[in-house]
Design a protein around this nucleic acid. Structure first.
Length: 435
RNA sequence: GGAGAGAUGGCUGAGUGGCCGAAAGCGCUCGACUCGAAAUCGAGUUUCCUGACACAAUCGGGAACCUGAGUUCAAAUCUCAGUCUCUCCGCCA
């Protein structure tokens, strides 16, 4: 944190100097261009009368040279300014708690009570392997670490969650569904703030140079990049299901087991474009919309306000929803809901006019997970697990699961009997501890 | 993958070196007419940067006709490169 703020301060002092330089150059070059424009009128008038313009042309040639030099000087300065500006984080809202790290996040509220188990609850990874519905080994074989194959009822539950969440947000919460491309260009990544600073977190696709989206926020927010929104239409509300791809650079060793931290996961995302005066109200509503999913699934959670030390680069204010995970005996992030104010809008030029004659204003953008699918799957597996190793299907999902009420073992082909292997491993482990 | 056509304001679309921020039409805003509306008539209608000003209003200057570079005293217009769109052929979920 300290290093980061030092960098920022040195950036800022340089920025002021650059800004002054830029204005000076502009004044100089525009005076010359003004002369050029006047001369243009003279020359074209003189040509009609047949007057001699040789001397004038010579004079203008010299000015033209000067203009060229100054023009390139100006664009050089502007490039430097852009570099500084693009690396500056957003300014936090006054209600964002001040702190140094995630330890300073403030709990806002809790919902639900964690269930007490009459047995030792397993982790979702253990449950998944036992039922042979989460296949980590084969995912590692076909791709690598941090990928997972979902099988049988896990795959179906994943699908059920996607449909369920979208249905709630479109049907009850008034969002409009969009399904965007999963790869975007550089301009889009810059618009929402992933680039240029977080290049190493992204998967880049060759040869196009496109980037795989780390969240639907990127394509959906950029839907209205360089656009003038209709004031009457605000707030514009979208819900979007997409896969998300994250390189997870610098997170080696963290959450290696299970589905918590993956290179590829699914997410249903909520995105809003609002007028500045209503953005905080709309932010609260968006959080409530995301919470509703957890409530319908009857999963205990808490709402955390992220401190200035933990909040993301682009956000002014951010709430995390954290769901209860029995195996970890703690709450883990399942949704992140941020108000970016005009940070993204400024980069992406997302504007609106209050009336046809009014000046354009920057919109505010807000988004949040509603929810991360993989982590919801985890929470269901862990919170709804039974002693016999099965998992009860939450009531609201039963229609989406073809009427089944319990998730059981994968009944498909499994040549090496992963389930048996897992059991063998477990008995061995027990035998070892008994000795 | 091969061949061709194109990219101009909110939209349609003219413009092939200066008099073009850009014709015309549509749309939109305001006004007249009308009891009201339609029709008609009149006026207006892009954005960004910069300067003057305490701010706003306003006024001055500059820039922008897909993007970038070049030719030229001067580029929407000419040259080169790129991006995107469309049509035809091939291939394909």
């Amino acid at each position: 944190m300290e290093n980061e703020s030092e960098v920022t301060i040195s950036h800022l002092s340089g920025f002021i100097k650059l800004d002054e330089e830029r204005r000076e150059v502009i004044k100089e070059v525009e005076d010359l261009k003004c002369q050029q424009n006047r001369a243009n009128a003279e020359i074209s008038a003189a040509k009609k009368t047949g007057a001699d313009v040789k001397a004038k042309l010579e004079e203008m040639k010299a000015i033209s040279e000067k203009v060229k030099v100054l023009d390139s000087k100006q664009s050089e300065i502007e490039k430097k300014i852009e570099e500084v500006v693009l690396y500056l984080p957003n300014i936090c809202h006054e209600t964002t708690p001040v702190g140094a790290s995630g330890d300073d996040n403030v709990e806002i509220r809790r919902w639900g009570t964690p269930a007490k188990f009459s047995f030792e609850p397993l982790s979702h990874a253990d449950i998944g392997v036992k039922l042979d519905i989460l296949d980590f080994d084969r995912a590692a074989k076909i791709t690598g670490a941090r990928f997972t194959v979902l099988k049988g009822d896990a795959a179906r539950l994943e699908r059920a969650l996607i449909s369920f969440m979208i249905d709630v947000h479109t049907g009850e919460n008034g969002y409009h569904e969009v399904l965007p491309p999963y790869a975007v260009n550089r301009d889009s990544m810059r618009g929402t703030g992933q680039l240029p600073k977080f290049e190493e977190d992204l998967f880049k696709v060759t040869p196009s140079g496109y980037y795989l989206i780390p969240t639907a926020e990127v394509p959906v927010t950029n839907l209205h990049r360089d656009e003038m929104l209709n004031f009457e239409a605000l707030p514009v509300k979208y819900v979007s299901f997409t896969p998300c791809f994250r390189a997870e650079a610098g997170s080696y060793g963290k959450d290696m087991k299970g589905l918590i931290r993956q290179h590829q996961f699914h997410k249903v995302e909520l995105v809003k474009f609002t007028a500045p005066e209503t953005s905080y109200e709309e932010h609260e509503k968006l959080v409530a919309d995301a919470e509703k999913i957890l409530q319908k699934l009857k999963l205990p959670y808490r709402v955390m306000a992220l401190s200035t030390g933990d909040i993301g680069f682009s956000a002014a204010k951010c709430y995390d929803l954290e769901v209860w995970l029995p195996s970890q005996n703690t709450y883990r992030e399942i949704s992140s809901c941020s108000n970016f104010e005009d940070f993204q809008s400024r980069r992406a030029q997302i504007r609106f006019k209050r009336n046809p004659k009014a000046k354009p204003e920057l919109a505010h953008t807000i988004n949040g997970s509603g929810l991360a699918i993989g982590r919801t799957l985890i929470a269901i597996m862990e919170n709804y697990q039974n002693e016999d190793g099965s998992v009860t299907v939450p009531e609201v999902l039963i229609p989406y699961m073809g009427g089944i009420t319990k998730i059981g073992a994968f009944k498909g082909y499994s040549p090496q009997g992963q389930q048996q292997q897992a059991q063998a491993k477990e008995t061995n482990a027990k035998a070892m501890t008994n000795k």
